[in-house]
Design a protein around this nucleic acid. Structure first.
Lengths: 338, 338
DNA sequence: TTATTAAATGCAAACGCTTGCACAAACACT
DNA sequence: AGTGTTTGTGCAAGCGTTTGCATTTAATAA
């Protein structure tokens, strides 16, 4: 089964390759009759234009690299990433772009890998699911003038093309609402310190408390990674040592761990202890008690990020912008507002 | 910032492009001194060989397409897919292959999309996460002699390159063990009918019962899709209408829904009703009660599938094989064996 | 009819690389 | 010194497209 090229089609249709090419792109200055003839032959021969060759001359690949700033295995285990990818994949498909997944064992390699995909011309641009502080990759990208959009926020480079939710405000508003509802003793089960959003949310919490002349006893903050085990331990530390009536977990998974730990310790949720998560992962919302949470439109963020990138790629006068997506508090069973 | 090509490097190093090319591939018949000189220049100029051009002449892209036989959004929502991708991504990275994600809204498009990636030469081969019955894509692939490996089983094409676990045996063994433990009234919360593994597991269950002169009342089987809602409804149907002491769910998510439904109906798990799932999704193992399950090494399956594919691509005498991976029953709290 | 313009097609270069083959230089052997 | 091998490089074709420009053919105008 020899591969059929544009030349084969041309020969068969008794036209030149250029003509076939123009038929493919539906050029207006090819006669209707020729188009029909060529199209017929293409079908008959089972011809598909070679994407690589086309990419070479067009200097565009129509594919986009996806970088997750953490080991892929762990990344994918988190529903957050699945959600983002969902959104990205949907739009990519619709706009006829391919998605190139980049994986690596550690941060450093990951960066290098991603950058390389761009340098070797395999992708036209990058979507960064970066959440870590101190992003060297961004620096590189900027320096090389490579198109990318970040999902999240970079500390060093505040205004770059990105889409994010306002974590500070989300946390701030949440606390205000909690205070209004009469909660007094707050504790937080935070994510990993290295993530930018952890810091942002924490600041939101603290500022909101300050605004009401309260403050968050630092020992009531526990940082943890996203494994269930360590989340349980952290929850245990908080709950067994401190009086608290509202526990804010910076991810639903952490919230879920907190609920279980709390119940194991004999707290009744939400009566004695309210627990609220972040993200609104589908699965977690079905637990008993179902989790009150700050919903972040993850899929939507993915969609917007890639849409922005594609726009940047296709319209050179557009250089991207900052899109902040709003969040929403969803009240379920694990914490009740008045 | 003009892109630097092999010619630029050649000129700068005062050698021919061929020489530079050979330096890149570390050809043995380039002198050490020349290599050093050229490498130095390459570094200095920030040269990266263009992957597209290379692909064009080599007729290889070193990238692999990933096809999930269901809408990407729903696919990604399921931990099973994340797991497989984890495995695939890890190996791909290690072996220096890129991963191309293919998405589409519906099955038909998905197939077309995937096939197209191959036909246009964007990928060298395909990994199919196909679980549905009656796979037209496979037929096409076979006909066109395209390299692929299937994760799962195809009814129409039993012996093709694939990796799978023996769902029939896993279910059969599970039931035997349950019978030995004294369970008598079985019910099953099955996945969607269209999936091959649903049928396989069901057959395993039924055959095992037959082997012990028992049979499964057909009304005690409920098919459901993988949304939590429909799983709950199905579990409700079973539990509120039939006497049962062991409920087998064909996925941990379904098992989790069953546990909740059972408890809501006043059954105590596992004392009055044992519930066992399939897959061993990490998250679900942490629930209370933790889920007894048939562990399927999902990540491992992904790894093997892509390894097989790469081997097929790189060694033309190797045409793939069938790898069956064994499963393991993991006893936790939701169902106790004697 | 001939000149003029518009419409349809072909030519050939280019995209950035690899590789078979030819060839020059350096070395080894009678 | 002459012949035969190595060893290291360069030449040029080719991978399958696209596209600016030239060219042919058809259509219109004079």
């Amino acid at each position: 089964m020899k591969k059929v090229t544009i030349k084969d089609v041309a020969k068969e249709a008794e036209v030149s390759p250029s003509t076939v090419s123009r038929v493919i792109s539906d050029s207006p200055n090819i006669s209707k009759s020729t188009k029909e003839k060529v199209r017929f032959i293409m079908d008959e021969m089972g011809y598909y234009p070679n994407a690589i060759a086309r990419s070479l001359v067009k200097q565009k690949t129509r594919s986009i690299g996806l970088v997750m700033s953490r080991p892929t295995d762990r990344a994918l285990a988190n529903p957050f990433f699945s959600g983002v990818i969902q959104g990205i994949a949907a739009v990519a498909q619709e706009k006829n772009y391919s998605l190139l997944l980049t994986a690596a064992d550690n941060y450093e390699d990951e960066y290098q890998e991603a950058l390389k995909q761009l340098k070797v011309g395999r992708v036209d641009g990058l979507v960064l699911l970066a959440s870590r502080i101190n992003d060297d990759l961004i620096k590189q990208l900027l320096k090389n003038n490579f198109p990318f959009v970040l999902i999240g926020r970079s500390q060093e480079f505040p205004s770059i093309p990105r889409v994010d939710n306002d974590n500070y405000k989300a946390a701030f508003d949440l606390i205000e609402k909690l205070i209004k509802s009469g909660y007094k003793d707050f504790s937080v089960l935070a994510g990993h310190k290295d993530y930018v959003f952890t810091g942002d949310r924490l600041k939101g919490v603290i500022d909101a408390l300050k605004a009401h002349s309260m403050n968050l006893d630092p020992v009531k903050i526990e940082f943890t990674d996203f494994t269930f085990k360590s989340a349980e331990q952290s929850a245990y530390k908080i709950l067994s040592n401190h009086k608290t009536d509202a526990l804010i977990a910076f991810d639903d998974l952490l919230g879920m761990a907190a609920v279980q730990t709390a119940e194991a310790l004999g707290f009744s949720v939400p009566d004695q202890l309210g627990i609220v998560g972040f993200n609104d992962h589908t699965l977690v919302s079905y637990l008993k008690p179902s989790l009150t949470t700050v919903k972040i439109p993850i899929v939507d963020m993915g969609e917007r990020a890639i849409s922005m990138l594609i726009k940047m790629l296709e319209d050179s006068s557009y250089t991207g912008e900052e899109e902040i997506i709003s969040t929403e508090i969803i009240e379920r069973e694990s914490l009740k507002f008045i």
